[in-house]
Design a protein around this nucleic acid. Sequence first.
DNA 1: GATGAATGAGAATTCATTCAT
DNA 2: TATGAATGAATTCTCATTCAT
Lengths: 206, 206, 206, 206
Amino acid sequence: MKKINDYKEMSKSEKKKLQKEKKIFDAAYELFILKGINNTAISEIVKKAGVAKGTFYLYFKDKYDIVDLIIIRKSNIILNEAMEIVIESNIYDFEENVILFVNHIIEILQKDKKLLKLIYKNLSWGLFYNAFKNMKHYENARRIITFFIDKLYIKGISNDEAEKILFMIVELTSSVLYSSIILEEPDTIENMKPLLFKTIRKILRN
Amino acid sequence: MKKINDYKEMSKSEKKKLQKEKKIFDAAYELFILKGINNTAISEIVKKAGVAKGTFYLYFKDKYDIVDLIIIRKSNIILNEAMEIVIESNIYDFEENVILFVNHIIEILQKDKKLLKLIYKNLSWGLFYNAFKNMKHYENARRIITFFIDKLYIKGISNDEAEKILFMIVELTSSVLYSSIILEEPDTIENMKPLLFKTIRKILRN
Amino acid sequence: MKKINDYKEMSKSEKKKLQKEKKIFDAAYELFILKGINNTAISEIVKKAGVAKGTFYLYFKDKYDIVDLIIIRKSNIILNEAMEIVIESNIYDFEENVILFVNHIIEILQKDKKLLKLIYKNLSWGLFYNAFKNMKHYENARRIITFFIDKLYIKGISNDEAEKILFMIVELTSSVLYSSIILEEPDTIENMKPLLFKTIRKILRN
Amino acid sequence: MKKINDYKEMSKSEKKKLQKEKKIFDAAYELFILKGINNTAISEIVKKAGVAKGTFYLYFKDKYDIVDLIIIRKSNIILNEAMEIVIESNIYDFEENVILFVNHIIEILQKDKKLLKLIYKNLSWGLFYNAFKNMKHYENARRIITFFIDKLYIKGISNDEAEKILFMIVELTSSVLYSSIILEEPDTIENMKPLLFKTIRKILRN
DNA sequence: GATGAATGAGAATTCATTCAT
DNA sequence: TATGAATGAATTCTCATTCAT
């Protein structure tokens, strides 16, 4: 079987293809962030990417195909960074771990409002969860999920329930993030944070 | 200022105007529910409403103008119903009141998935909250919000914090509702309910 | 009920609409004749007609909508002319009538090869026959068909069979016309004519 | 000149070429039958054939190049079969021979409506007639044509006229076939048959 | 000979908005 | 007020053909 990651072992044309895909992906990402998905025409994407219109359809089904990819890839990066910080902190209290984790995500998305907007409006738990659970490329993200679920299991919570708790924390966090960062409702993220963390702690306790 | 509610006191032409507005509103609602907002053209709305295209622009700025109205009006109805049930229950435990309240909302939206979809995808806390807080027509909804905030105040929670807690409960509930009813992720609403209620109780406790 | 033909009684806007339809129709006809249907873009039609692209779709479903109209209208004109000639000839022999009739059609289409091409390639008996049989506007054409069928009835041929014989004469004639005029195969129309007439006579005899 | 038929004497690479051509031809035929010519893209043909896009252009000029080939080859097969039946019948009455011949063609095309559609819409007498008259590969079909013309010659009809009569019978038959089988207009093929045969007999008689 | 990635012109269709009536 | 014909920019998507490998 062909190893996907071995960029070195790829033929020249395969590399070229990958680069072309990246060009289109990057152009789309920038435009989505800048003008929103619905206001970005494919003709703009290909123009920015410097490829022909037809080339777009060689690599993607439509705009929304790219949106899903963006969400998965970007989330993956952020989640990995957040986990990295948790590990490096050398803190072993689970509640603190979660707060640390969430806090990093907040900080990233606070800086990148556009990305937050894009992710929030197009995220579905299924897309997110299954991508990480099943796909080859997202080993790390999968490990994060498992980490949380395992920790809750130790606290006497079934895997099934743990998964649902995780889901609720994610949903609550992303809702609060979106509303407070983008709309500043009901308050700024700075003012929402203490209550959000308090609420997450409550949810994690029995 | 003209009193809006006094339908009886209106002149004939004013009544006609209101009826025309209602026709357009109703047609738009049905179509949004049926085909989604983006897939509904103004030409379809006016056709269904039986008015001319130009007439639409006499009453509304664009499609999204109507969407906001729909959300506010429909939410208002549902919230009032839910509050009615709380009052009629003669239960005076606050936690139970909230659960009863949320449960009714779940049951309504479980039956009307289309409306849930429409509301969830286009709801913003600001729209919702401010509409009820400030507008004449939504006295009841305003009273509900005040009811909750007062109850939390008695428990020693500041109005400001109470409002945020309310916000979080609303956001969490709507996220869970949407995901579980529409996508059945991470599980059906029936299976999510116990955990959702448990979580809400946790959030309400100190 | 509104009389369709009363051009005089039409409102100004109705007249305008009719003129616009005519403009598009005429432009399309000329282009179809000139370059063929498949090689004519709607953008060319509207450009030639001097209207906006959207206007096209206000009057016609697509290109082929116009093709059908062209065939029916043009056939109607030709058939009426041919019948006129039969009547004016004061010949009362049925066989001669048919030959006279067919001969006129040949002469018209011999002069207008482009129209022949258009008609032949897109004609279906159903379109043709039913249009004349049922539509208000084609009283004369209907009367022609009835005339032939009646004459054959007198000769002891059932209406049903008469209709089929008519169909075969039409099909044979149009095939021969198309092949001989457009492709000069197997011979020129002049050289085919005698045999075609002979064959038609044979078909009409018992 | 290279003998085309000697498959055995071909070099390996020549065989390979022929096989590749056949693959493309077969794929195109199936797709044309299935979806029509205009709705079949070259990319689909090569995909089905399992060759690269560029390869198509090594063997054919365009889609329509293949269409002509299909018509000639398929017609050839059908005509040969029909002739076979005439010969095997041991009937020596010419009129009966023609009817037998036409009847077989009807039966084949009645079973293979798709092929009928393809052939009819793209058949021109010239293509058909000249292919059989001149090309090496269609000796049998050529002999059939000669057979009919000879028989008519015996009846005192010049070769030239005989050819035209044949043409008219073919055109009439194919028109009736197409219209009755595909469109069921003016009636089903079963109901048209008696009249078609009667008409053909009339045409053949002096 | 064979490949298939890349091209980009071009087609059909939609639809919010305007404005003369 | 109300109408609805007209607009035309904008968008998506297709596909025959080329050409470097």
